[in-house]
Design a binder for these strands. Sequence first.
DNA 1: AGAGTACAACTTGTATACAAGTTAGGGATA
DNA 2: TATCCCTAACTTGTATACAAGTTGTACTCT
Lengths: 217, 217
Amino acid sequence: MRGGKDIIHYQTKPQLKDIAYQKIKEIIMSGEEEFTSESSLVNLLSMSRTPIRDAIHRLENEGFLKVYSNQGIYFWNPTAEERNELFDMRIAIETYSIKQVPVFTDENITYLRENIRDQYLAVEKEDYLVFNELDMDFHQYLLEVNGNSQFLKSYKNARERLMTIRSAKYLLKTQSEVIKRLIKDHAEIVDNLNKDSNVISAEILEKHINKGKINFS
Amino acid sequence: MRGGKDIIHYQTKPQLKDIAYQKIKEIIMSGEEEFTSESSLVNLLSMSRTPIRDAIHRLENEGFLKVYSNQGIYFWNPTAEERNELFDMRIAIETYSIKQVPVFTDENITYLRENIRDQYLAVEKEDYLVFNELDMDFHQYLLEVNGNSQFLKSYKNARERLMTIRSAKYLLKTQSEVIKRLIKDHAEIVDNLNKDSNVISAEILEKHINKGKINFS
DNA sequence: AGAGTACAACTTGTATACAAGTTAGGGATA
DNA sequence: TATCCCTAACTTGTATACAAGTTGTACTCT
C-alpha cells in the first residue's frame, strides 16, 4: 500500500467513459429513442463495452435510464407525478437557498438584470432555445450566490431531466405571452431581493416554478 | 432490435456489484481507512474487478469517495463546510416537504408519537445506536407522508454521508441531556402538525437540524 | 555527495472472452 | 389447428488480459 500522499490533478486527457456519458445523455434528451442496449451503443459510439457500461451506470444513478438485467436499457419516461416531484425538488432547494443568502451584492443584482434583459431580447427574436439557456442560467446564478454545491448539483440534475424532450414537450407549444409572464416573475424576484430576508422573492419563486407543472398538457 | 416490450421484474438473484456496494460503503462508514485501491478491494471481497468497479463508480456518484485516475481511491473526508451543505440540504427538503403535506392523519401522528416514546426509552438505556435508528426513521417517515421519492432519496444520501464515522465523531460525545433536547424538538414538531399549514413545525424542524452543525467539535 | 535517469511496481482505463438469463420463433407432436 | 418444447439470438453480469499513466527507489554518472 502506497497511498496517503497528496493528490495532484494532472490535466487528464478526455476519457472514453466521459465521452460516452455525454453522447448517451444527448440521445436520451433528444427523446427520439425509448430503449437501447449496450451492443447497439457500442456500434454507435465505436468503443468497447467498458466505457459504455460506466456511462450507463452513471446515467442510471442520475435517473436518466434504467437497466433491466438481461432485458435491455430503457430511457426514463417520466409520469406527471415524477415530473412534479422534480419541480418540487427545485422549489425546496431554490426557495430555501435564496432565503439563506444574507445579502445580494450590487454585482449580483446587475448580473441578474442583464440576464433578464437578454431574456426579453431572446423572446423578441422568438429564440426559445436561447431563452431556455438564459432561464437556466438565471436560476443557477441565484444558487451560485448561496454557494451550496449540493443545491447546485441537485438543481442541475432536476433541470436536465425535466428538459428531456419527452418530458418537455410543453416547450414546443409555449407562446411568447406565457414566456413574457415568466420573465416578469424573474424581474419581480430580483426587485424584491434583500427585502424581508428574501421571503417575498422566495414566494414568487415558488409560484414561478410551479407554473412549470401547469404548462404540461 | 427486439425491445419495446413490457418489462417483467424477475426475482433477481443478488448481484456481486450490489454486495460490493454494500460492503465498501460499510468500510467507508466505519471510518477506519482513508484510501484504498481496486486491487486491495478485489483481494478483500474475493471477486473480480468488474463488480468492484461498478460499486466504486456508484459510490463516487453518491459522494462517498473519489477516484483519481492512476493514483487511487480516496474516501470522502468532509470539511466543515461540506457537512453544513448537507445539513442545509436536509433543511431545504424536510421543511418544504412538511409544509407541502395538507394534513397528517391520526395514523401518522400515532406512528410518530410511538417513535418518540421509543426514542426516550433508547436514551434511558443509553443505547445511542438505537436512538439514531429511530431518529433516522422519524425524519424519514415525515418525508414518506409527503411521498416525494426525490426528497427521500436525497435525504437518505445526505444522512448516510453525515453518518460516516469520520464526519459523525460528535455522536461519540453527545450526552443524554443533548439528545433529550433533540427528542423534545421531535415532540414539538409533532404537537404543531396540522396547525398554520405546518409552518411552525417547519420552523422547529429547521432549528432542530441546524443543531447538527453546532454539535461538531 | 548530489543530480539525473531508468526501471519496477503500482494505479486506473479499456478491450474482450465467457457465463448466465431472457425471449422470439420454428417445428414436432397431439 | 393448437400446444409444447427446443434452440438460436439476443440481453446484461462477470472475469481477465492488456494499455497507459504515476511514483518510489535504486543505480549511474559527474
